[in-house]
Design a binder for these strands. Structure first.
Length: 295
DNA sequence: TTGCAGGGGTCAA
DNA sequence: TTGACCCCTGCA
């Protein structure tokens, strides 16, 4: 079956998609944008998104998705994996920058996932002053307590709960998930979204600047969390989330000195423009995997 | 073994 | 502009 230039073949409990370019599961799932995909012993990744559990592998232009159907590929996974976007072209444009070129060669198979906005927002509220393994544990705990159970290969997985469900929790209930001081932000933020004080669906139609200030009205959400939310849900590609890793790599590779948050933001907008967010992903992955700026 | 620093930031003073 | 913040892990 042909779909948008891709050839879909049903196989067993899943599908094979032929004609895939610029897709490396390790790069995609380890570049810091998501917390719910786990590497399996065979190198594939299993994760839960949009209420479905799938196992994903990709090599030689063939993307294998287990536990899915061609219909779900059209309705969910094509968009989720951003398969309509030409990353070869993006990389070609960004690689005009000699420094970024190295980071792109390192993480050549990165794609920006179109993740659920609410899940992304809460996940990155949890990320504040936290470590990645801990963030993953807290997100998993919240999903297990409040989310829907989904079975796959004899195991239970749990979808991330919607904002309504989260907002109906008490602070005491949520605290068993070990979110620490961020729990009160999660309760308040999900409540504001439930009460339509902030409408996440509307962000798509707003300017980047307006979307960011809308998000930062939520407790626990500063510029960095707002930018992560906009980027990793695929709403805006022109933001440049600047965490400690990105700051370190920018200082070491571009500035050759200490640089302020504002300097880095301005520099990224000027140098990477509409593609700043994609550039950020190549740089974050490059910095973290190579421990840049730690020595 | 115990103790302490510090982490994908944000908030309040 | 600066310190506190939940909780956990790594390292003396």
């Amino acid at each position: 079956m042909e779909y948008k230039g891709l050839n879909i073949i049903e196989k067993g409990n899943g599908i094979i998609v032929e004609g895939i370019k610029d897709f490396n599961p390790v790069h995609i799932f380890e570049c810091g944008q998501c917390f719910r995909w786990f590497r399996q012993d065979d190198g594939s990744y299993t994760g839960i998104a949009r209420g479905r559990v799938v196992n994903v592998r990709c090599s030689d232009g063939r993307l294998g998705i287990e536990n899915t159907t061609p219909e779900d590929f059209k309705d969910i996974w094509f968009e989720y994996f951003d398969l309509g976007r030409d990353y070869s072209y993006i990389k070609q444009r960004l690689a005009n920058d000699k420094i970024l070129k190295k980071a792109i060669q390192f993480g050549y198979g990165i794609r920006i996932l179109k993740q659920d906005i609410g899940e992304t927002l809460i996940s990155f509220i949890i990320s504040a002053n936290n470590r990645i393994p801990m963030i993953m544990k807290v997100v998993a705990a919240i999903s297990k307590v409040y989310g829907e159970e989904v079975q796959f290969n004899g195991r239970s997985y749990y979808a991330f709960p919607d904002m309504n469900r989260l907002s109906n929790s008490t602070l005491e209930q949520l605290e068993v998930c070990k979110g620490g001081f961020r729990c009160k932000y999660i309760i308040k933020t999900s409540g504001m979204i439930r009460d339509n004080e902030v409408n996440l669906e509307r962000l798509t139609h707003m300017s980047t600047e307006a979307a960011r200030s809308e998000l930062t009205r939520l407790p626990g959400v500063g510029d960095k969390v707002a930018d992560c939310t906009l980027l990793y849900s695929g709403i805006k590609l022109n933001v440049f989330p600047t965490d400690v890793w990105v700051k370190r790599v920018m200082e070491e590779l571009f500035f050759k000195r200490e640089a302020s948050h504002e300097e880095i933001q301005n520099f990224a907008q000027e140098r990477f423009g509409e593609l700043a967010g994609v550039a950020q992903q190549y740089l974050f992955y490059y910095a973290r995997e190579n421990k840049i700026g730690l020595g």
